[in-house]
C-alpha cells in the first residue's frame, strides 16, 4: 500500500473528518492476524470502564468487527485499520479493511438491521442463529446484528475506492 493511500485510509484521518472530540485509546494498522486480534482484545480488557455492561458492549463490538476484518478482508492484500476512541458520550469503534467488493446484500442487510427496533432485531438475530448454517468462512453472518444490538446505535457502513481496490469502513458508536 502506498503512503498516500495509507494516510487517506487511516482511522485517525477518517474520524478527524467527523469529530475532533474523540480521544484515541487503541489503534492498530497492519495485516490482521488471529494473534494480533487476541492482542487487541487483551488491550481492551486492560482498560477501565465505568461498569461491566459498558465493557461487555464495547468488547463485543470490537470482537465482532475484528472477526469481520480477519475473515472477510481480501487475501494477500493491503493493511487493515482498527481503532477505539472515546468521547464524553460514547466509545467509537472503527475498522477499515480491503475487500474484493462491497456486496449489495451486505449493504441491504445493514440497512435492514439499522431500521429494526430492538425487539424486532433480537427476533431477527435469533431466527438467523436458529436457522442459518455455517458458511465456508466459518461464520453465519450475524455479526452486524449483534453489533447493533450491543452498541444500541446505528452501524455506519461506507466504502472507498482506490484504483481497483475497494475498502470497507465500519463505524460504530457504543453509547454510555
Amino acid at each position: 500500500m502506498d503512503y498516500e493511500c495509507l494516510t487517506m485510509l487511516s482511522t485517525r484521518n477518517y474520524i478527524s473528518l467527523f469529530d475532533a472530540d474523540y480521544k484515541l485509546i487503541i489503534n492498530y494498522e497492519g495485516v490482521l492476524t488471529y494473534d494480533k486480534m487476541n492482542e487487541v482484545l487483551r488491550n481492551i480488557k486492560s482498560l477501565k470502564f465505568k461498569n461491566k455492561d459498558l465493557f461487555r458492549r464495547v468488547y463485543t463490538v470490537a470482537s465482532e468487527l475484528l472477526d469481520n476484518v480477519y475473515r472477510h478482508s481480501k487475501p494477500d492484500s493491503y493493511s487493515s485499520s482498527f481503532a477505539l476512541y472515546v468521547s464524553q458520550e460514547n466509545y467509537r469503534v472503527l475498522t477499515i479493511n480491503p475487500v474484493a467488493k462491497v456486496k449489495s446484500n451486505v449493504i441491504n442487510d445493514v440497512q435492514l438491521i439499522n431500521s429494526l427496533p430492538e425487539d424486532s432485531l433480537k427476533n431477527h438475530f435469533m431466527n438467523k442463529i436458529n436457522s442459518s448454517e455455517i458458511d465456508e468462512r466459518g461464520t453465519i453472518g450475524v455479526g452486524f446484528d449483534l453489533i447493533r444490538l450491543k452498541s444500541k446505535g446505528l452501524l455506519l457502513l461506507s466504502s472507498m475506492q482506490k484504483g481497483e481496490d475497494e475498502f470497507l469502513i465500519v463505524d460504530v458508536k457504543v453509547k454510555f
Binding site: T60, I129, T139, I140
Partner: peptide, 12 residues
C-alpha cells in the same frame, strides 16, 4: 465470560 456470534449458533 463471552462468546461471539458464531459461538452463539453452536451453543444453541
Amino acid at each position: 465470560e463471552y462468546f461471539n456470534s458464531t459461538s452463539y449458533k453452536y451453543i444453541l
